[in-house]
């Protein structure tokens, strides 16, 4: 980076202005280069998705498709139960998100505001769950799913992810930060705890709920290991696991692989574009994915 602010004093003012402009150009140059590196793989994904298999595998590589084969998108739905898998991913993501928001916020409110015996101890146990890497839990969780007879069901995908120590912790921090006055006035008026939670407190933590929601949606949509373990039937796989099955049979059909992977990541991209602010806040708040 060039910057002329270190020039000797007499020329400093002009030097600074020119230096800043030069620095600005250099900054943009680096940032644009980086942005191209970040975005280009997706452009290439799209371009490959619309080529014929033969054209995708020609040397030297052609950038644009000779013929734009939009029907490749339809082929994804033929080689995979793609619609079902998108459906599974959507149902699981929504169920986990709604479930976490409801259950975690309820518990978080209790931890922040209600006094009951053993509260600190139970909360410490909640925190200890945060420290355990998920691989340590998978085998016993798998055994539970087996004994519940839930293998190859949507329930298996939803169940463990319905409960979140992280979500409870995050929301508790928010509840703790809220002023008590409104709540105490409502208590004096005879409002029940449930009403206070639902009508007064919950609306006040909306930003935190939104942040938790987008993080949960994303984690659920992108999860791979757990679905691979519990659901081997393609029709009840989420799209993440479903895509990996394509690789075996269609390992050289790159247009279909690219079309499928593009379609599978699209819903989350749309959510991200629409809810960017919540995403950024979720990241800034959370520390973890």
């Amino acid at each position: 980076m060039t910057d002329a602010t270190t020039n000797p004093a007499p020329t400093r003012r002009r030097g600074t202005a020119r230096g800043t402009r030069l620095g600005g150009v250099a900054t943009h140059l680096v940032l644009v280069l980086g942005a191209v590196l970040m975005a280009f793989p997706f452009v290439w994904q799209l371009l490959t998705a619309l080529k014929s298999q033969a054209e995708a595998m020609t040397v030297p590589v052609r950038l644009l498709p000779q013929e734009w084969l939009w029907e490749n998108v339809a082929r994804v739905f033929e080689v995979l139960p793609f619609a079902e898998q998108l459906g599974v991913s959507t149902v699981v993501a929504i169920a986990r998100t709604v479930g976490q928001l409801a259950l975690c916020s309820l518990a978080a409110y209790a931890f922040a505001r209600l006094e009951f015996r053993g509260r600190e101890l139970i909360f410490a146990l909640f925190l200890s769950v945060l420290m355990v890497p998920s691989q340590l839990l998978i085998l016993p969780q798998y055994q539970i799913i087996v004994s519940l007879g839930l293998l190859n069901t949507v329930g298996a995908l939803i169940l463990p992810g319905l409960f979140s120590a992280f979500g409870t912790f995050l929301l508790r921090q928010f509840f703790l930060g809220l002023p008590r006055e409104m709540e105490e006035a409502a208590l004096l008026d005879g409002a029940s705890r449930w009403r206070i939670y639902w009508n007064i407190m919950l609306p006040l933590v909306k930003p935190a709920l939104a942040a938790l929601a987008v993080i949960t949606l994303m984690n659920s949509w992108n999860d791979l290991l757990w679905p691979l373990v519990v659901n081997t039937d393609p029709t009840v796989m989420p799209i993440s696991a479903g895509l990996t099955t394509l690789q075996g049979q269609f390992s050289t059909d790159y247009p279909v692989l690219m079309a499928g992977s593009l379609l599978a990541s699209l819903p989350m991209l749309v959510v991200f574009i629409l809810l960017q602010r919540q995403f950024v806040q979720g990241i800034a708040l959370s520390g973890s994915k």
């Binding site: 692989l257 690219m258 990541s265 991209l269």
Partner: peptide, 21 residues
């Protein structure tokens, strides 16, 4: 936004694209 997109992209999809690249 551009820098953040790979993070929200399905890792399986990113893996496939890069394998192709």
């Amino acid at each position: 936004t551009l820098y953040f997109i790979p993070f929200v992209t399905l890792p399986v999809a990113s893996g496939m694209v890069w394998k192709w690249l």
